[in-house]
Amino acid sequence: MILSVRDLSIGFRRIGGDLPAVDKISFDVREGETFVIIGESGSGKSLTGMSIAGLQPATSVTSGSIRFKERELLNRPDAELRRMRGREIGLIYQDPLGSLNPVWPVGDQIAEALRAHGLASGAAAARRAVEMLDRVRIPDPARVATAYPHEISGGMRQRAMIAMALIAGPSLLIADEPTTALDVTIKAQMLELLAELQREMALTIILITHDMGVVAEVADRILVMYAGRVAEIGDADAIMRTPSHPYTAALMTSAMISEAEPKQQLNAIVGVAPGLGSFPDGCHFHPRCPLAQDDCRSFVPPLRRLGDVALACHHPVGSDTALMAEA
């Protein structure tokens, strides 16, 4: 167990009470696996991912526990977390153009990660940045190192981001929607690259996405989040084969409908995901759930084990309907 999250809650301070964004979620990540957190925007998945590295917004309040390699990370001083970022936990983000500083050359920004931790300095750091660019399969890495972010392609930028995240040799990589901005071919290449690097560098990867296609390709285990809560968590194969939570099921269905257009997938579900501060009572998913019943509107479903997975649902797919059919 490289990472262990327990009862993590994240809220935003507002006059008249905090707005909950993540509500008491718990999960474990095992060493060397690819752990995927999937959910719509507003589900709290990115917030969860960022909070592991202590990069949640300064205006947020957190409680619970995040233990990384047996050390508690939550609510530690920033100076302490700083030593861990880049060095032990690497991060890549959804928007590589915005996430790179436009006014510094790419190589310099990569080398900075080494310099920040005193791992190399000056020319040595620059040289290792070029090597790292080579390792993420960038052709002509020396040229790219001197280029500014706006001068290289989107795919290259994300590769450069990966190089930056991994150059200081972290064991955990948090990838927040790393393929969202990329087209289908590049996306495939990127996932392939991540897989290769995972093998080479013995990485544990937490992949945050809303793209079921990505899940199918790389996930060892999946955490499905909906409106700040865990909907379903467990072995990827088991969940993909027989989704038990109606939300997971809906995700799977819509993924099949519009495989080519991943952005369309979540929209295929009827209705819209609730925004921050407007989470409904009971099961957060009930207004959009085809299987919702009265108890769903009043009671929060507890997380319970069902075979290889755990899910939070009063009436999982294939159980209640089956029961109703029997009756």
Partner: peptide, 26 residues
């Protein structure tokens, strides 16, 4: 509030370097 500031923090950079090297220049 730009994203590259988060990236810089994610690398483990301190507030001083972030301000003077990254933010100021922009």
């Amino acid at each position: 509030s730009r994203l590259y500031v988060r990236t810089a923090r994610g690398k483990g950079l301190g507030p001083r370097v972030i301000l003077y090297k990254h933010v100021l220049r922009n």
